[in-house]
Nucleic acid binder design. Structure first.
Length: 275
DNA sequence: GTCCAGGTTTTTA
DNA sequence: TAAAAACATGGA
């Protein structure tokens, strides 16, 4: 991978492992929107544009300082996906096919609070509607950063909300789960900062103290925002994929990079074989 | 009108 | 315990 500072921005080139569209549409994040082939999103309260080009991915209007401090870690650019793909496809022909199809996906290192609320909203819901609810939540309660950008509201900004307050979001039955998450995070009963530092089973159990957070949502939070790459979220697509592609398999332990393997399986199941 | 959507909780047998 | 049903909302 090559990183160049050109034209007032940053160009990521010479890698197979940063496919912008796949990374933004694999369901890991809900604040990136496609616009004329570019993907525009919000990272740490700042707008970021990812512009796919023949020679790589260009991020316009980014200072070197912001790139190093924010975007390099957020896009996980120091992780060697080639080595990971080699590891997870070893002795696994199914995974080899999945990786062939999903190559280019990177996992973004998202904010834990935002990821928690986002995946609470995701349950029994579809991606366009999830994005709409999150967008309304940010506009309603998040700080206005200018240029139409709103920060994701903090737990403090969301404290003492009632279901009626959240009605304009049209989040449905999930509103009471959001309220429970706000309460338990603000009280310290669930310590989000500790999640990356404690063992995976404890981190999962901690998140599941929140009403509305089950195993799947907890795994998404741990995988997408708490550096637990062994977390393997099992949703309807993965259930179908496992049943069809691994009919004899009982467990969902795909190793220390199971979560990355899960992403390849997810897009493979959804887009390629339409299980 | 019916079905379904990156599930979880509540109810029922 | 395990399997259904309920949960809000909106697009297909």
């Amino acid at each position: 991978m090559k990183i160049s500072f050109i034209d007032g921005g940053v160009l990521i080139s010479e890698t197979k492992d940063f496919d912008v569209a796949r990374s933004c549409e694999c369901g890991q994040c809900f604040r990136f929107y496609e616009k004329d082939g570019d993907y525009v999103g919000v990272v740490q309260n700042k707008a970021v544009t990812l512009s796919p080009r023949a020679d790589g991915c260009f991020m316009p209007n980014v200072s070197k300082e912001d790139f190093e401090a924010i975007l390099r870690p957020y896009f996980d650019l120091d992780r060697d996906y080639d080595a990971i793909v080699s590891e997870i496809t070893k002795d696994d022909d199914v995974m080899r096919n999945a990786c062939l199809y999903g190559r280019g996906i990177r996992l973004f290192r998202q904010d834990t609070w935002e990821t928690l609320i986002s995946f609470i909203i995701s349950q029994n819901n579809n991606i366009p509607r999830i994005k709409g609810i999150i967008s309304r939540l940010c506009a309603m309660l998040g700080s206005d950063m200018g240029n139409g950008i709103f920060a994701f509201p903090t737990p403090k900004q969301m404290q003492n909300l009632t279901a009626d307050d959240l009605a304009p979001l049209r989040a449905g039955f999930r509103a009471k789960y959001i309220i429970d998450a706000v309460k338990k995070v603000n009280s310290g009963e669930v310590d989000l900062k500790a999640l990356p530092l404690i063992p995976y089973p404890e981190a999962k159990a901690s998140l599941m103290k929140i009403c509305g957070v089950g195993p799947k949502v907890a795994d998404c939070v741990l995988l997408f925002s708490a550096s637990h790459l062994e977390a393997f979220p099992v949703d309807v697509w993965i259930k179908r994929a496992l049943k069809t592609l691994y009919p004899q398999r009982e467990d969902t332990d795909f190793g220390r990079y199971g979560g990355i393997a899960q992403q390849y399986l997810f897009v493979y199941a959804r887009k390629q074989i339409k299980l």
